[in-house]
Structures are given as C-alpha cells and as structure tokens.
Design a protein around this nucleic acid. Structure first.
Lengths: 166, 166
DNA sequence: TTGGAGTGTCAACAAGGCTGACATAGTGTA
DNA sequence: TACACTATGTCAGCCTTGTTGACACTCCAA
C-alpha cells in the first residue's frame, strides 16, 4: 500500500495496521462471549436472552421499542426471547403509566441472578484486561470504539451513559 | 465522561467503566458488520463466507485445519461454506505438496474481488476511526483488545502478524 | 502394516435472525 | 366522536449458520 509518510509517521494508518485492528476486535469479541456461551450451554437460554437481560438490567423500566432500537432486531425476534423470560419469571412487564400501550421492563430477583451469572465472568475478564493495559490504554480503547460506531449507535451509547458517569 | 484521574485513582476500574467498555465493543462490532451485511444481502453469501474469504486472503495457502482453528467452528460448518466458495470459483483448493492430505486454500481473482468488495468499506470505517482517534488511542485500543483475548486466540493473532509488521 | 491425522460429506437438529400478515389496546387529532 | 396511528403481541414460514454423530477416504509416520 502507499501511504506516504510525512514528517510525523502515519504508519498507524497502513492497511496492515487497519487489518490487524479489525482482526483484534473479532478475536476479542469472541473471547468476550466465550464464558457466557459456556454457561448458556447448560441452560435453555441463548445469547439473545443474555443481551436482553443485560440491557434491561442497565436501563430498568425501558420499553420494548427502546430495546428493539438498542438491539437492532425485529420485534418478532425480540418477542420470542422476551416471552420466555417473562414466562420464566426473570423479567416483569408492567403496563406504562403515562402511555398504557407501552410495557416497562424490569428484572426480577431471578432475572438479576441470571444477569450476574452470565455477565460477572465477562466483567472479570474485562477488569483484568483494563488493569493489565492501564488507564491510558482504556481511554484510547473507548475513544476508538466510539469513533467506529454508526452515529445512530453512538447516540444510543451516549444516552445510556447519562447520569451514570462518576 | 470524566478525565481519567492519575495518581492512586482506580476509577477506570469501576463497574460502570467496565460495563461501558463491554457495551462499546458490542456496538462497535455491530457497526463494523453493518456495511458487509448490507452488501451480502444482495448476494447468495453470508457472514461466514466473508470470514472465510478474509482469512484465506490474509494467509494464502492456509489449510482447512488452520482455518478451523482460527474461525472456531466445526469442519462441517466450514465445509459447507468452503464448498460453495470453491464451486463458485472464488477459492482454489490445492492438494498439499508435503502432505497430500492437506488442502491449501487460495483466493482466485474473483475471490479477491469479493474480499475487497466486502472488506473495503470496513477498512474505510476503521481508517476513519484510527485517524480521528489518533495513534495513541490506536495503541491503547490494540493493547486492550489483546489483553482481552483468550490465550489461545492471542497466540493465533500473534502468529498471523508474523512477517507482516512493518 | 496399522493407527491416527486431515479432509469431505450426509443427515438431522437448534438458535436466532428475517418477512408478512393480522389482532388489540390505547393515543391523539381533525 | 371518529379515525389514523402507535406500541405491542403472535402466528407461520423461511434462511443462515452453528451443532452432533456417523462414515469414508487418503496419506503419513512409527
């Protein structure tokens, strides 16, 4: 490839560097799923259930529509998952107060237990990586991931962090 | 978000920071798949084909077993994909020279064309993010992703970079 | 010569995406 | 009030891509 290197090196923009970055995300993402996957194998739930439970935990009272937007799936797909979670008593669906068409979703104690079981090892892995790489790496990591996101997801990501930053 | 505080502060290790990191990867990974997904919709291939083509392109002559390890799927699953790619003339499978049981996989011109079509927009997104975030962020990003990987994948990742680092 | 490795293939199944169609309740506006 | 629209749920059927299990063949190496 032919990036011309002027004064300050642009070597970090070579095709090779770009490719390695893409592969790094792929491998890291897969590793991040490995623990929950292993646990999920022993139960009647799948990744889709984990994702739903994760985001309901993060934003208790969220609506179905909001969850649909965050997860980027169809309502039929989400509903299949949500139905089993509600039937099994992991998620509670309350009719909206302002708008009775809406359903506000909450985790029950049982739901929170599942969320922990699945996410704790994931967070532990992440914590180890954070610690190992140090605060500066973490900051660069976050910066880059945000820059990679579609504007739409960037906005959702930002809004999920509201009132949560220390 | 707040500036990372130096000194004794371990604020970057709070649960909230960890969770945000996990979500950031999730959203970024999804964004990274969005362009190829859109293109794949118009053809008879899927993500699995993209992955296969990507790694064959990266390591021309690689064997089936090696590809299986990198992709982490079963041979039946990979074979289904590989078969269509070979039938369609995107991948060439040559009997190994040293070990005639092995198949060495190569992209044809047509295969390289598909790889480009799918990966170029992805690399373009990545390049933009790299440029926007700057070299230091890139370095932190890479460092953290590597720290997140399972040892096994870390090794594969490292070996893929051999003789490719500038 | 024999066991194991590398590969290919068949069949059956599951998870979790998708579309399309239709139903119901509730909201908001003309 | 009537009507259009929104939020949600559900049925049916399809696709991709993962899985297991079984079996076959070739070839390498001890």
């Amino acid at each position: 490839m032919g990036e011309i290197q002027r004064g300050e090196s642009l070597l970090f923009l070579t095709d090779e560097q770009i490719r390695q970055g893409i592969e790094a995300i792929y491998f890291a993402y897969r590793s991040l799923l490995s623990e929950p996957d292993r646990i999920l194998e022993t139960m009647e739930y799948g990744r889709a259930h984990h994702r739903a439970v994760h985001f309901i935990n993060r934003a208790p009272g969220t609506t179905v529509t909001n969850l649909l937007e965050i997860l980027g799936v169809t309502k039929q797909s989400l509903n299949r998952v949500l139905r089993t979670l509600i039937e099994d008593g992991l998620v509670e669906s309350r009719i909206g107060k302002h708008d009775k068409r809406e359903r506000n979703l909450f985790l029950t104690d049982k739901g929170r237990a599942l969320e922990s079981e699945l996410s704790d090892p994931q967070r532990e892995r992440m914590r180890r990586a954070y610690r190992e790489a140090g605060p500066e790496a973490v900051s660069g990591f976050r910066k880059l991931l945000e820059a990679m996101m579609d504007t739409e997801l960037q906005i959702k990501y930002a809004s999920m962090r509201e009132n949560k930053d220390t």
